[in-house]
Computed example of a mutant assay.
Amino acid sequence: MRRGGRRNGGRPGRRTGDVVIELRPAAACELDVVALGEVMLRLDPGESRIRAARRFEVWEGGGEYNVARALAAVFGHRAGVVTALVDNEIGRLVESLVRQGGVDTSLVRWEPFDGIGRRARNGLNFTERGYGVRSALGVSDRGATAVSQLAPGMIDWDDLFGRRGVRWLHTGGVFAGLSPTTAEVAHEAMRSARAHGTVVSYDTNYRPSLWADRGGPDRARAVNAELAAHVDVLIGNRSDFPGDPPDPIGPPGSGETFAAAAALLAADLPGLQVVATTRRTVHSAGDNDWQGLAWSRDAGPAASVLRPHLPVLDRVGGGDGFAAGLLHGLLTGEDLATCVELGAAHGALAMSTPGDTSMASAAEVRALALGGDAATRR
């Protein structure tokens, strides 16, 4: 995606809404979108606490995967996930859950199980939803997971993006933060994707626990800067990058300061076309103000309706829901204002149900994005 430019053999960009985006023809690709990231097994104690739980409900989830799953299950796109799992009963449970979400599992790299997980293991994520003054809590058990050991050369990206064909690659800072080699894999995937005309999106999605022993936020910002040079659509803030940025949020109900920060970021990244973020003010675990913001070189700034005091059942996955709705709009040719409304509406609906993944329908998302409410439907 490049304003006024061409890539992939001189093929002209296709205008989608008010954003110029170079999308490969759907008929020439096996998949519309591929996510590169970790898929963990989430264990949810429901209304209880992890420390006091006697039973857990299981879901699958992961920052990058959640986007692909929503694009498949909610919006009907052909989606796949590039990840790695250990070939044991836990890995096969994760695979089954991914398939139930309509996501292609043919790109999963399976690693042999050594009996106890000494060499590689599958990630677990214990997550409390929070309530009132008690915040949501995530306790990850993901050290030495199979996907964290991916290294350059293990995935044949040219076969995926060239022979099979993919219209859109999505990855993010969660995957890049798993290990030093996963950032290199993300870089390798992005370069191949762009060489074959595949659009690339990246969500900075900073997780302090992933960077605690790897240089902290400064190293995360440096990795973001390295990868963003290959990105068309960026989800995050100017503060996720090195430098001394202006306030990325600005006054409530306004996207003006965000737009200035996005334009400043894009000035350093000539290939970047769209920047988007979410604004969340937490009054309590179940009471959040919620809004989506976006900016593009062609359309300028756009802001969704501000939803003050949005009731939240489970906030985990709300940002991924925003990303999925935004990407769906860009994939289907909506203007930027509609894209950001779809993203904010989908994120809001995703937070109304338990688990990382969305249970919304495309019709519900569009109705809410266009001004609908929670009135009973019969």
Score class of each variant (00 low, 15 high):
1 M>Q: 05
11 R>W: 06
11 R>Y: 03
18 D>C: 09
21 I>H: 12
28 A>V: 07
29 C>M: 10
32 D>Y: 15
38 E>D: 10
43 L>R: 15
60 E>Y: 09
65 Y>H: 12
69 R>M: 09
71 L>D: 00
75 F>W: 07
76 G>I: 10
80 G>V: 02
82 V>I: 08
86 V>Y: 10
98 V>N: 11
106 S>H: 14
109 R>D: 10
111 E>A: 15
111 E>C: 12
112 P>G: 08
113 F>Q: 07
116 I>Q: 09
118 R>Y: 14
118 R>C: 08
121 R>C: 15
126 F>R: 00
128 E>R: 04
129 R>D: 09
134 R>V: 08
136 A>F: 02
144 A>M: 15
144 A>W: 07
148 S>C: 03
149 Q>E: 01
151 A>K: 13
156 D>V: 09
158 D>E: 12
162 G>P: 03
166 V>G: 04
170 H>Y: 03
173 G>P: 08
176 A>P: 08
185 V>T: 02
192 S>L: 06
200 V>N: 09
201 S>I: 03
204 T>C: 07
208 P>L: 11
209 S>L: 12
211 W>I: 01
220 A>R: 06
222 A>G: 03
225 A>S: 09
226 E>H: 13
232 D>T: 05
234 L>R: 04
236 G>A: 08
237 N>R: 13
237 N>F: 13
238 R>M: 08
241 F>Y: 15
245 P>D: 04
247 D>E: 14
247 D>S: 01
248 P>W: 06
248 P>F: 11
251 P>D: 09
253 G>R: 05
258 F>Q: 04
265 L>K: 06
266 A>N: 11
268 D>Q: 15
272 L>R: 07
272 L>W: 07
275 V>G: 00
275 V>S: 03
276 A>Y: 04
284 S>P: 07
290 W>E: 06
291 Q>H: 12
293 L>R: 01
296 S>T: 06
300 G>L: 13
302 A>L: 02
303 A>S: 11
323 A>Y: 09
328 H>V: 10
337 A>W: 08
338 T>N: 10
342 L>A: 05
343 G>Y: 03
345 A>T: 03
346 H>L: 08
353 T>F: 06
354 P>R: 12
354 P>F: 11
354 P>K: 04
361 S>K: 02
363 A>H: 10
368 L>W: 15
371 G>D: 05
373 D>C: 06
373 D>F: 13
374 A>F: 12
374 A>H: 15
375 A>S: 13
376 T>E: 14
376 T>K: 15
377 R>I: 13
